[in-house]
Simulated scan of single mutants.
Amino acid sequence: MCVVLGAGRFPVSGIQYLANLTLFNAPLGVENVDVVYWTLWAELRFYGVVLALILVGLTRRRVTGALWLWLGAACVTASGVLPALLSRLLEVPVQSSWAHYFVAGMALCLVTKYGPTRSTVLLVLGSYALALHHATGFAATVADRYDEPLSPVVATLAITLIFLVMTGIATGWTRRLGRGRFVHAGALTYPLHAHTGFILFNLFADTVEPHVLLTAVIAAMGAAAYALHRLVERPLTGVLLHRLQGSPGRHKARHGRG
């Protein structure tokens, strides 16, 4: 759709497309096909940290210690006191711009599993403070990029709300609100792509009333995401899981020979 209807605004080369399929296009210096893909490289690095913890051995004490080390490394890396080369190397696993969210999420996971402790509460509070510090600076950067004012107060309120909601989930405050349909609604966010919305707005901005266009785009994108999720993602996930896990018969035969 970007190529056909983008009117040259979102060109994608073959090399760029193939590099994005590997999920390692960011460290290779290849631009994302869609702006929202920037999160994938951050996720991959997080999974690398988790893999390292699994290899060491997951215990509450080890995970808690690793989270303190991670949060401290993020503060040091972001401070600019390290030599440039060392800072760039540490930035790969540390991710100082986003470490506070990963640390807070893992600390809240410990809260869910073991209950709150002084260490996990301090980890969440420290992550919250670091998130506010980065969010206000990021708000100014985004405001300059799009030449639109973005209030640091709004950024602060948004970060605070996110931490409150996640804390409520971890401590069970929201358990009565849990519904299966929320899980399905969350799954619909994966097929959505920012450039598709940009293209639709650009195509119809001059001919459709803005509020009508916004409502129509939201409805159309929601319907397309639902169709992709039900007709493509869910069936394909089932096939892949079956292939990766093997058939029940094969597992029984393997256990029988043991």
Rank of each mutant, 00 (worst) to 15 (best):
A73K: 03
A73L: 08
A73V: 02
A73R: 05
A74V: 07
A74Q: 06
A74Y: 04
C75N: 07
C75F: 08
T77R: 02
S79Q: 09
S79G: 13
P83W: 10
P83A: 13
P83L: 09
P83R: 09
A84S: 13
L85Y: 13
L86R: 00
S87R: 15
R88H: 06
R88S: 13
L89I: 05
L90G: 10
E91V: 01
V94G: 04
Q95P: 05
S96F: 04
A99D: 04
A99H: 08
H100I: 03
H100Y: 07
H100D: 03
Y101Q: 00
F102C: 01
F102P: 02
V103Q: 07
G105R: 02
L108G: 04
L108M: 14
L108Y: 06
L108I: 03
L108K: 03
L108D: 03
C109Q: 10
C109W: 13
L110G: 05
V111G: 10
Y114M: 03
Y114G: 06
G115K: 12
G115S: 08
P116C: 11
P116L: 12
R118M: 10
T120I: 03
V121G: 04
V121R: 14
V121E: 06
L123W: 02
L123G: 02
V124E: 00
L125T: 00
L125Y: 05
S127P: 05
S127R: 04
Y128D: 01
Y128I: 01
A129Y: 10
A131I: 08
A131W: 13
L132E: 12
H134I: 14
A135R: 12
A135P: 07
G137V: 04
A139T: 09
A140R: 12
T141K: 04
T141D: 01
V142Y: 05
V142G: 02
D144F: 07
D144Q: 13
R145P: 00
R145A: 14
Y146P: 01
Y146G: 06
Y146V: 15
D147C: 12
D147R: 15
E148G: 00
P149N: 11
L150Y: 14
L150G: 02
S151N: 06
S151L: 08
S151M: 09
A155S: 15
A155Y: 11
T156K: 05
T156S: 14
T156H: 09
L157S: 03
L157N: 02
I159P: 04
T160V: 06
T160W: 08
L161H: 01
L161T: 11
L161Q: 07
F163W: 08
F163T: 07
L164C: 12
T167V: 05
T167M: 12
G168V: 00
I169F: 03
T171W: 08
T171S: 11
G172K: 07
G172T: 01
W173H: 02
